Amino acid sequence: MTGSNEYASVRYLVDDVQAAVDFYTTHLGFQLSTQAGNAFADVVRGPLRLLLSGPASSGARATPEDAATPGRNRIHLVVDDLDAEIDRHRAAGLPFRSEAVSGPGGRQILLADPAGNLIELFQPARR
């Protein structure tokens, strides 16, 4: 297998590339890397490269129709203060898809991007 080891990349299918870029860069601390109109963009946060593929992108065209809808898969972003992040995102009017839940590893809540793809905001338990 060959390829770059610099980033772990995840592809999200989106309806509107610009809306997705705005969402991830404004609210979740990603930086725009490249953009090709409303067909494709990639944004980066730490070692994660998120590929935002619009309907005209080759990545979206290669997806079978029955697999093209958002599912339960999600990216997982670690935060220092989940309550502060919840307050900040609620104040911005962002759509949550769950309430905050706690487990043995920490606390989490699900947020949705403009296309309905899920983002898990996770605060690890103090050890």
Rank of each mutant, 00 (worst) to 15 (best):
T2G: 12
T2A: 13
G3E: 02
S4I: 08
Y7H: 07
A8R: 09
S9W: 11
S9K: 13
V10W: 02
R11G: 15
Y12E: 12
Y12D: 07
Y12K: 11
L13T: 01
V14Q: 02
D15C: 02
D16K: 00
V17Q: 01
V17A: 00
V17H: 00
Q18N: 10
Q18D: 12
A20N: 04
V21L: 00
V21H: 07
F23R: 03
L28P: 02
G29I: 07
F30N: 06
Q31G: 15
Q31M: 15
L32S: 07
L32D: 06
T34Q: 10
T34K: 11
T34E: 11
A36Q: 15
A39T: 10
A39D: 15
A39M: 07
F40I: 04
A41G: 09
V43S: 06
R45N: 02
G46C: 05
G46Q: 05
G46A: 06
P47D: 15
P47N: 14
P47S: 14
R49W: 01
R49L: 05
L52I: 11
L52E: 06
L52D: 05
S53N: 15
S53Y: 05
G54A: 02
G54F: 04
P55M: 03
P55W: 06
A56W: 13
A56L: 15
S57R: 05
S57N: 05
S57H: 05
A60E: 07
A62P: 00
T63W: 04
T63R: 01
P64Y: 05
E65S: 12
D66H: 14
A67Q: 13
A68R: 15
N73Q: 14
R74S: 12
I75L: 04
H76R: 10
H76V: 10
L77Y: 04
V78K: 13
D80F: 00
L82P: 08
A84P: 09
E85Y: 01
I86D: 08
I86V: 15
D87W: 07
D87R: 10
R88H: 10
R90M: 09
A91Y: 04
A91P: 13
A92I: 07
G93V: 06
L94E: 04
L94V: 09
P95N: 08
F96D: 01
R97E: 15
S98E: 10
E99Q: 13
A100T: 13
V101Y: 14
V101D: 14
V101T: 15
S102E: 12
S102M: 08
G103M: 01
P104V: 12
P104F: 14
P104Q: 11
G106W: 06
G106V: 12
I109E: 00
L110W: 08
L111K: 06
L111C: 08
L111D: 03
A112D: 04
D113F: 02
P114H: 08
P114G: 03
A115F: 06
A115T: 07
N117Q: 08
L118F: 06
L118S: 02
Q123M: 00
A125S: 09
R126K: 12
R127I: 09
